[in-house]
Design a protein around this nucleic acid. Structure first.
Lengths: 190, 190
DNA sequence: CATATTTATTAAACCAGTTTAATTAGAATC
DNA sequence: GATTCTAATTAAACTGGTTTAATAAATATG
């Protein structure tokens, strides 16, 4: 779990004994493409760290798939709102590429935070970072055109385009598949 | 500072002595409409709690004002990214209504988090809540029409419409003033 | 109170997306 | 390798915004 350990230490210093205490609760699991970590109706018991692979977080409303996020190598994730509120999820966490994740249960995560002030700080700082990322994403959505956002995604996360089909990327960008195709066509003509 | 204390305790239990330690660093300040907490180029030293009033967080790019958020009663806020990275802000935090805020410096906030595990947890949980709010806002932006988002804002934060001019609300919704006016007209005809 | 200034509305032309449907391309399966 | 199924593109009609400019309404100021 060197990768997870490094990731945690990239936020704040943690003593070896605290790190050891924390990591003991994480279980390594592998999933095949097409499996689900979460489906609507389920309660969320676990928190995840993506070691390697890709999970797509989406809902289906009135038959329309709406992609909220793609979690790839090095991301922490879960369906956070139902996780915290202890209500059933309304979403899917679908494995869209064979993946290896580390899993910790909510009760174990609480134990870790109770035991270690340093790891609680890591929790605060990682949440802060996630907050800022989202905030910047909101402002990109508001201020940039769809074409600009497509180009930016292409630049920032090029591997996504190998990993997931285009219509999911369209949904992530808030477009229809047709709309994204038009943008691509327009760009290719230049 | 009963309001701030209550707000903190709404997230997690904090002992009286830890609370006292934390609160001692907050200074009460009042600002008049039209004043600025932050302007572009400035470094962000402080973290704020809005006791009563309204602050608008925006940037101006190529002459266009882009409203990112309105902070009203009971919100924690600052320009977080430059605050953390210790780089100059590119934004404005403008007081758009006479306001009373509690202010804590970054160095004092660090002291508080070092001193108290419980308050560090409060920091984590408040950040988590802010993250979720933003995440839900992203998905509203993607999945709802502008009209729906206008109606939702009207319902969730009706006081905003008394507090700030409509063209700032238009910007917050990612619209032009003309666009928002058209939506209002369309709605009024029903 | 009158005037100046700012804010909101309206109109008209425009455009980047949508929807629906048909077609093509690519992947998986027999 | 042919067939089936899924994904991506294209076309056409439409729509909800945009931009620009003029006007009206509301607010601040002398």
């Amino acid at each position: 779990m060197k990768d997870l350990e490094q990731k945690i230490r990239s936020f704040t210093p943690v003593s070896d004994s605290e790190m050891e205490f924390g990591l003991q609760f994480y279980k390594k699991k592998t999933f095949k493409k097409g499996e689900f970590l979460v489906k609507p109706g389920q309660y969320i018991q676990d928190f995840y760290f993506m070691k390697q692979g890709c999970v797509t977080f989406y809902t289906i409303e009135e038959g329309i798939t709406r992609v909220m996020e793609f979690y790839t190598d090095g991301s922490f994730f879960t369906d956070l709102y139902p996780y915290i509120e202890e209500i059933p999820s309304e979403s899917y966490l679908e494995v869209t590429e064979d993946s290896t994740v580390y899993v910790i249960s909510k009760s174990d995560a609480l134990k870790v935070f109770d035991h270690s002030h340093a790891l609680e700080r890591f929790g605060r700082l990682s949440m802060q970072k996630a907050f800022i990322n989202n905030f910047q994403r909101i402002n990109r959505m508001k201020n940039l055109s769809n074409q600009e956002r497509y180009l930016q995604l292409l630049e920032k996360r090029p591997s996504l385009f190998q990993r997931v089909p285009q219509y999911l990327i369209a949904s992530y960008l808030g477009l229809t598949p047709v709309g994204l195709s038009k943008i691509r066509k327009r760009l290719s003509k230049k």
